[in-house]
Computed example of a mutant assay.
Amino acid sequence: MNTRRWIPVAVGVALILIAPLMRSVCYVVTERELAVLLQFGQPVASRTEPGLYFKLPFIQEVLRLPKTLQVWHGTHESEKLVDVPTADGKKVEVTVWAVWRISDPVQFVRTLRTVPNAESRVKEFVRSMARDTITTNNLAEIVRSTNRKMTYTLGLPPEMVAAATAAATGPAGDAKSASSLDQAIPDFVVPPEAREPIHLGRTKIMDAIRLDAQHGLAQDGKNDAQIQGRGRGIELVDVGLSRIEFVPQVREAAFDRAVSLMEAIAAKTIAEGQQRKQEILNRTQAEVQKIEGEGKQEANILKGKADADIIDAYAKAIRETGEFYTFVRTLEAYKEALKGDTRLILTTDSSLLRMIKSLDPPGPRPTPGPTADAPSRTAASLSAGK
């Protein structure tokens, strides 16, 4: 009875003691790993497939390596290719990238040992081959892949290209030579690199860089007779250029040229706008003056007709009521002339007293005083208001 109680305890103790031993004997390789079996620090076997494997405890150890593709991107300032001259004398800065993987784990451990060392070798070969290849080709070959027709750049309107093309054509529309046309089109409309014929192109140049770097990496990593002819155990999958730009001095000069061009375009646009504005104002002013002149002419015609109608009405009224009108006007004249304290001395033949003289006397009355010839010698003395 007591023996049965101790059996599970013994099994548990045995498992606890065997577990560390099993970990030192067994190991697992996943789908994303490569394993190299090291014996006294030297690689003796590799495991490239996932599964459970065994090793000698305390003598052998497992070095795990990545099975996935490794990407190196030279975005760091120290990894960029600076001041790289092209075959046509242009200096550029180039950012290179590369994709590689471990193809032979044992040879990889013998020659490179670690992934950072492998990445350093890939960077070294790729940068070197890229520099050598770029210096032997023109800038147009590096940035372009086909001879397709390039359009305008910098967001310039198509009419600028049309204007530049028209400047290179004759008055009859006959095109000039190709060199004259190229000189007429501004560099910022169609860059000179866009006019050069492409013989290789960027794709073929990248393939050449990749092949040269692959060949260099495939050479013997060490002068050991046991590993000669096996390379470094890595494979370069692909290379490319993520960025190509001019050196800072050239960029600043190009930017200044772009600013000058934009300012010239702006000045031309403003001048055309001002001219168009003045034309509109002149046309509007002419229309306003024309409308005002026609209005004044029509107003004068209407006013003349109204004055004529008024004069005609006055004349008609005068013809119909001439004597009464003259009588009223004469009374108004008397009222204005004989008011206040003004004293007038008039003769009997004065025109102002014509109406009074034409009135019939109210009746005979005695005339004391003077003789019959007195009227011819007597002056009429009238006092205003009496």
Rank of each mutant, 00 (worst) to 15 (best):
D373R: 04
R5Y: 15
V161Y: 14
V122T: 02
H199R: 15
K335A: 03
F54K: 00
A384S: 13
P192Q: 01
V11E: 12
A45E: 12
D307F: 08
A172H: 06
K67V: 03
L211S: 14
A166R: 10
D207F: 03
P57W: 06
A258F: 07
D212A: 15
L63R: 03
W100M: 02
S351D: 14
L344P: 00
R232M: 10
E252Q: 14
I234S: 01
Y27A: 03
S358K: 13
L344R: 09
A271T: 01
R276Q: 10
E272P: 03
R251D: 11
A313M: 11
S24V: 05
A308V: 03
P8Q: 08
R110M: 01
F108E: 08
K222P: 03
L352T: 11
P368D: 07
V36D: 06
V190G: 13
D174K: 07
T169G: 03
R113S: 00
P116S: 10
T348W: 07
T348V: 10
L236N: 12
P43K: 06
R276P: 03
S351C: 06
R23A: 06
T321K: 14
V25Y: 03
P361E: 12
N2M: 03
D187P: 14
E93Y: 04
C26P: 00
D187F: 10
P158C: 09
S145Q: 08
R47E: 08
I291E: 13
L346T: 09
L38P: 11
L352Q: 10
C26D: 05
S350Q: 05
A271G: 04
E124K: 02
R343E: 14
D220E: 11
L112W: 03
P116K: 09
S103E: 08
D207R: 14
L211Y: 14
D256S: 00
I310G: 02
S179E: 15
A374K: 07
Q70E: 02
R354D: 15
R144C: 08
T111A: 09
E279I: 00
K290D: 08
D132G: 06
T75A: 13
A218F: 11
Q183D: 15
V25L: 00
I311R: 07
G295E: 13
N117V: 07
R110P: 00
